[in-house]
Amino acid sequence: MTYQSERDERAPGVVSVQGASYDTTEARPGRAFLARGTGRLTSKTWFVLVAGAILPILALTTWTLVSANDLVPSSRLPSPADVWFAGVDLAERGLLASDVAISVQRVLLGFGIGAALGLSVGAIVGLSRIGDILLSPSLAALRAVPSLAWVPLLILWFKIGEDSKVILIAIGAFFPVYTTVSAALRHVDRQLVEAGRAFGLGGPRLFATVQLPAVIPSVISGLRLALAQAWLFLVAAELIASSMGLGFRLVDSQNNGRIDRIFFVIILLAVLGKLSDSLVGLFERWIKRRWT
């Protein structure tokens, strides 16, 4: 079975199919059949969607059962229904819309600024040796600063306004983009770059024609990471100093003992994060198909 022997060459005794490892030291034909069978199933869209939903549904069921039977006091674990009504209540008061709106605005602004800066600085460091020598040690040191350490400074400098939060989020979004772009540019196929030069391209034209398209897939991956970072830094910023937004709603609910709202906001953050990530993920897949 060629399928089997191909795998064996790479890692003796282990067949790896879509991330899962199977020991092939016993029952080879059967294992191979099984592996091939799951290989087909895991490539079906409906299966991916259904299988992905299994764990959340299981968790929701357990949660419902636990709270319905009063296994945990509702001051510690509200029922799913409580959480749902807390959300409806927030929506009716108009707080939900304003919280989500301001948080999304901060994320988009911070992400946009951070990503744009990350792209430009990453390009400078990745393309020019002197830029690399001058900038990368300092940037590596700045990246090592824990995100929350910036908060006191930003609040002192920019007060508790939008600026301080957007800047913190921009810092968070900057580094993933900067790192992936500079590394990818350093590894652009030298032969392609030389071919570009041989056909009279140089400077910005060479960048636009050869180097930038060559790193587009990496740039998208960097943007995806940066977006995740942006949500992370958003909540950090809003937890500490704000009067609006999802992070503020968390602190506010904590102070008022509204554990149902805390649950609601956490779930909302998960959904928003996943949604934005999926959007960029779709874009990423499209780009990769088109580019490689």
Binding site: L192, A195, A198, V210, P213
Partner: peptide, 29 residues
Amino acid sequence: IDARTAVGFQEPRLLPWRTVHDNVALGLP
């Protein structure tokens, strides 16, 4: 780099994200 010369390398060195047509067009003066 001299505009009067053109190089054909050992490897094709085509830009993978461009069509054959657009790769050839890269050579136009």
